[in-house]
Amino acid sequence: MAPTTRERILHAAKELAEEHRSVTGVTISLESVSERSGLTKPGLMYHFASKEALMVGLVEQAAEEWDRRIRNAAGADPADLSPFDRHRGYVRTAMTAELSRADYWIFADALYQPSLARPWQERLASWFETDGVGQQARALLTAARFCADGAWAAEATGVFPAEDLAAVCERALGLVDAAEFGQGEATA
Results as ranks from 00 to 15, higher is better:
G158E: 06
L141P: 02
V159Y: 15
D103G: 06
S100Y: 14
A151C: 11
F160E: 15
F107Y: 15
R138K: 14
E155P: 03
A144W: 11
A148S: 04
G134E: 02
W120Q: 01
L99Q: 12
A108S: 15
G158H: 01
A153R: 08
E122T: 07
R145D: 06
Y112W: 14
C147V: 11
Q136G: 13
F107A: 13
A110L: 03
L116I: 01
E129K: 06
A143D: 09
A162C: 11
F107Q: 12
F160G: 09
L116V: 00
R123K: 06
E98V: 09
A156F: 06
E122C: 06
S100M: 12
L124P: 04
A153N: 04
A162I: 14
W105K: 07
A148Y: 00
R138N: 10
F107G: 10
P119Q: 02
L141Q: 00
L165V: 12
Y112M: 10
V133A: 01
S126W: 06
A110D: 04
D103M: 05
W105P: 07
L116R: 04
E155T: 09
L165Q: 02
A151V: 12
R101Q: 14
W127H: 01
Y112E: 12
G150W: 05
A117V: 05
F160M: 15
R118H: 11
A143Y: 06
A125F: 11
L116F: 02
Q136D: 14
A154H: 12
A137H: 02
R145Q: 09
D164C: 05
D164G: 05
E129A: 07
P119A: 01
Q136S: 10
A108R: 13
Y112A: 08
E129T: 11
A143S: 03
